[in-house]
Design a binder for these strands. Structure first.
Lengths: 65, 65
DNA sequence: TATAAATGTAAAGTAAGCTTGACAACGAAA
DNA sequence: TTTCGTTGTCAAGCTTACTTTACATTTATA
């Protein structure tokens, strides 16, 4: 699933490390997420949407298979 | 995390079994979801939102801890 | 009431999200 | 060029979403 985590993060001028601390996940989780290595849990998706002040749908692009 | 899966499903007049087949998950997954036994993956949340024709935020109520 | 349809749930296993630790690679700045 | 901040990624392990099987309980209907 594609996502705009990197774009949203950089728009806030944050590093992966800072973002991971704010969201209480590991830096590797953010790195892998941005690289599209896996999909986030719905909990992490909600945390991101709160921090980025947008909807989950505005961060994650779901393409049905 | 609270959710309105049961309400949305019944509004469509579907059984758990019918819903599970349409979403390609097991009936137990739907039952457990409705009972709040666990949170869905973001993929399942998107599938539900497409079928129910609403946003993920309209189905799942996230309360930050 | 009897019978079937729908739902709840337990146990055991698989798959995927996420962690920790570690190290390499890259870019910017001293 | 050296150093540092940032990011990529691997391996091993833990946790949780989800499956299969199976059976019990509730709800609806003949």
């Amino acid at each position: 699933m594609e996502n705009l985590v990197r774009e949203k993060r950089m728009a806030l001028g944050m590093t992966q490390d800072e973002l991971s601390i704010r969201l209480d996940v590991s830096r590797q989780t953010i790195s892998s997420l941005e690289k599209g290595r896996y999909n986030p849990s719905i909990t992490l998706a909600f945390k991101l949407s709160k921090l980025f002040q947008c909807t989950i749908e505005e961060i994650f692009i779901y393409e049905e298979e």
